[in-house]
Design a protein around this nucleic acid. Structure first.
Lengths: 258, 258
DNA sequence: GGGGCGTTCGCACTATCTGCGAAACGCCAT
DNA sequence: ATGGCGTTTCGCAGATAGTGCGAACGCCCC
């Protein structure tokens, strides 16, 4: 009996399947038909149609009139926006970022831990000094290549860092990206020493970034304040930028009390 | 028997419950504890914990270390972004919007049908002429108050419009918003006559918007091209803007072959 | 050392979900 | 009209997967 290994381990099967359908449909630029979904998930058609009906009923999936393929629906958008709302910073904190942006004439970022991940909570930029293209409010990617990512990783111990890299990988984004774990560890150690992280062209060519820690009253690193500038400007402005992000991070720390 | 009315009708119960949990957590700015979720959904704790474990395992939910409340996780962000990707327009279409923006010095929008809903697929704006604040790429809201919404609703018959309003409501956003169904019907009829929709301060105070239809080769209205300007500029620029959006819509129509 | 949560575990029950097959539907081309 | 093909719905019987309850466990705070 039960020669077949018990499934994944945790979950409510139907819930997992529903989520998997959403992911599948999301990954298909033009959506998928019921048959395609059934096949890729190895489900019977009856089951598939019932799941699809549920997801459609709840507005997580829709179809174009006349079309047979399912696409992501309104509820997905609403959930995504709800996440953004959960991330927004308070007014005083936003004001700090704004002031930092004005002071150094560069886009300023606030990042925070969210679960075991790192998320961008706020960006203060302007038409003259726009945010880095790929960067958005939401979960951060490639944290091993960003200044705020390094800074926040440095606040966790080696085991936690290892787990993080295992989950998220360490992709090479540019020629300078550090993908070697040993090298990254050394960098993190230096970050711990300086309480500051600097990154040059590791995330995007021609860009550099500098980050300082936001701390809870208890002293735990709970986030980072960072700014990005063009890589060629960094050498001449390093000292000034360091002062500015340290000050910004300190001010944010003072305003996140509870 | 079965004195209790059969549940909602369609769905896979567990899938529905999982989605409901996500919505609940999304609606709570600081997340919810397991107990709160169990109570609000009327579920046993065992069931609740199992569902939560599943959602957490799939990264739809997370918790801050040490915290007991669940918050939305990374997968939600990824799904939301997948939706945006599904919406992006092709290069030639984006170029049309860009040209329209440059020609009239105002933000230009492309909206499309998505299922039974209306979605904003692309926005061409600039620092000098920024998009309307509330408007984002994703599903549109309050389509009874926007020019593109009116235009696209006008392409559907009375029954479809009625269904739409029943689902989405007809909220009053400003003093000028049309919330009366009869009045809206008249407006839509005029839109059908003109093949053009205009809206003044119905969606946001001090703003006006003008929209023209994008058609499939078969002639069906599949979307809208629109621009927004300050309400006080509209009278003097109406003629020019009408020409521009009609031209833009026509050009988009020619580039969406299919 | 004693509450008060929050979380996990075990178990027995059955409602819920599943798969299969067949039938209804809609569409297209012949 | 007619026949075929792909899609979608329906019914049914079986049993898996999901459920609730109760209790045990672990933890923090009082």
């Amino acid at each position: 009996m039960s020669a077949v290994e018990r499934r994944s381990g945790a979950g409510i099967q139907s819930a997992e399947r529903a989520l998997r359908i959403l992911e599948l449909v999301g990954a298909a630029p033009t959506g998928l038909t019921a048959a395609e979904i059934a096949e890729r998930l190895g489900l019977g058609q009856s089951t598939t149609y019932r799941l699809l009906a549920t997801l459609q009923h709840e507005d997580y999936l829709t179809r174009q009139p006349g079309e047979h393929r399912y696409i992501l629906g309104r509820s997905v958008d609403e959930l995504g926006r709800a996440l953004q709302v959960q991330l927004v910073a308070t007014d005083p904190v936003r004001a700090v970022l704004r002031a930092l942006h004005d002071a150094v004439h560069a886009p300023a970022y606030l990042t925070v831990f969210r679960g075991d991940d790192i998320a961008v909570a706020h960006i203060a930029d302007s038409p003259e000094h726009p945010r880095i293209g790929q960067l958005h409010v939401g979960f951060a990617e490639a944290s091993h290549t960003t200044a705020f990512g390094k800074l926040m990783l440095a606040s966790r111990d080696d085991a936690a860092v290892a787990r993080f890299l295992e989950r998220r990988g360490a992709a090479r984004l540019t020629a300078s990206s550090v993908t070697d774990v040993a090298t990254l560890r050394e960098q993190l150690d230096d970050v711990r020493a300086q309480q500051l992280a600097v990154e040059v062209e590791e995330y995007l060519p021609k860009l550099a970034c500098i980050a300082a820690p936001v701390r809870s009253p208890a002293g735990r690193v709970v986030g980072a304040v960072s700014v990005s500038v063009s890589a060629k400007d960094l050498p001449s402005r390093a000292w000034e930028l360091e002062r500015a992000v340290r000050r910004g991070a300190w001010q944010v720390s003072a305003r996140v009390a509870g």
